[in-house]
């Protein structure tokens, strides 16, 4: 009564969009960059990478990033640390284990994903507590 307008908020929308983007990635639809990580080619969407990583933001935001469709990360992260981060970007779930946490932490630091870095530190701290 008397409201100026009505909004229906679909609370699942952001996770549904992300799920569809992940399906597009898995099927290679509209992926516009190949990342060579430890020699392993990984296809992804620049828009998702730039939205999730300060490192990719600094690379792709400028015109220099426009023509780049293959990107090797020399001296960068190893695949076992990078792949869980790429999955995290597209699923919001970061898979960690005591064996992989140091590699994921190193990759997240390289990719300037500060919030993930903090989560890795918390995980590593917790795994040392008795």
């Amino acid at each position: 009564e008397g409201a100026l307008g009505y909004v229906r908020e679909f609370t699942r929308h952001s996770s549904d969009v992300l799920g569809n983007l992940n399906e597009l990635r898995l099927r290679g639809i509209l992926t516009d960059v190949t990342l060579l990580v430890g020699g392993q080619p990984l296809r992804a969407h620049k828009a998702v990478l730039i939205a999730c990583s300060g490192f990719f933001y600094s690379i792709f935001r400028g015109r220099a990033g426009v023509g780049v469709d293959v990107l090797s990360l020399p001296g960068g992260p190893e695949a076992r640390g990078f792949a869980p981060l790429l999955d995290f970007m597209y699923t919001s779930r970061l898979r960690l284990s005591p064996a992989t946490a140091p590699a994921v932490l190193a990759a997240a630091t390289y990719l300037q994903m500060e919030h993930v870095v903090q989560a890795c530190h918390r995980f590593i701290q917790a795994s040392y507590e008795p």
Partner: peptide, 22 residues
């Protein structure tokens, strides 16, 4: 249990915030 995954919910910000156009 082999393969049992414990999930911890992280409520805080997950990724950087792209600055709004000045």
């Amino acid at each position: 249990h082999e393969g049992l995954v414990a999930t911890v919910k992280e409520a805080g910000r997950s990724i950087h915030e792209i600055p709004r156009e000045e």
